[in-house]
């Protein structure tokens, strides 16, 4: 009886795998399991958060494509509502790092262009978007600089670096038969390892 259950679940897993790997649109890839409709019950029984997340990410990509295909034929209110929904999900995707800033920026520009018909209004919306990008980049840069300025390991290394450079550049003879450049690099490498040793 157990083996019957095992075989049934295995079949479910196999079909579930097919469901996960529905054919992709790239032409070079042979079509596989394109007609597999949806997850069978057995596959659902081994569903996990990882699998759900995986499917959700795939769905988002498809939603984005679908929106732009349909957008020209949607009435303005519906188009705006769907675009807002995509923006909302885009924010979540940025937060969970499943989309990069570059992709997000291009997509946000595209959403403005797809939803704002009036040229002046579109220019204003894009200017606001650019300002948001600029602020985001400035804040992130400042935060990073602040992090480095207060990072004790980095600061310790930079102090050591300054001292070692002065010493090595002033040495009349480099020990070990290596070049000054090679010796300096070795010394700084050692200093880094010491500074960051936890």
């Amino acid at each position: 009886m157990k083996w019957l259950v095992a075989i049934a679940v295995a079949c479910g897993l196999g079909l579930g795998g097919l469901w996960l790997a529905r054919s992709r649109p790239h032409a070079a890839a042979p079509v596989v399991a394109a007609s597999t409709p949806k997850a069978p019950r057995a596959a659902a029984s081994v569903d996990t958060a990882a699998i759900r997340d995986y499917r959700e990410r795939e769905r988002f990509g498809q939603d984005v494509e679908d929106f732009f295909v349909r957008a020209p034929r949607l009435d303005p209110a519906t188009r705006q509502r769907q675009a807002d929904a995509l923006r909302e999900e885009l924010r979540r995707r940025e937060a969970d790092r499943s989309i990069s800033a570059g992709e997000s920026m291009n997509l946000q520009i595209a959403l403005v262009r797809a939803t704002v018909d009036d040229p002046q209004a579109q220019a204003s919306a894009l200017a606001a978007l650019a300002e948001h990008f600029r602020t985001d980049a400035e804040q992130a840069n400042q935060a990073w600089q602040q992090h480095l300025a207060t990072d004790p390991q980095f600061q310790r290394y930079k102090q050591d670096e300054r001292r070692i450079v002065e010493t090595v550049m002033a040495m009349p003879v480099i020990p070990g038969g290596v070049s000054r450049d090679a010796y300096l690099r070795e010394q700084l490498q050692h200093a880094r390892e010491m500074a960051y040793r936890q």
Partner: peptide, 30 residues
């Protein structure tokens, strides 16, 4: 100034020049 940990999510100028090789979304279509 080096690479922040959250580099991939910062809207810096360079990020705007993202390549279609870097990401899952099919922005070519858009």
């Amino acid at each position: 100034n080096g690479i922040p940990d959250n580099y991939m999510t910062i809207s810096n100028p360079g990020a705007l020049l993202v390549s279609p090789f870097v990401g899952r979304l099919n922005l070519l279509d858009l």
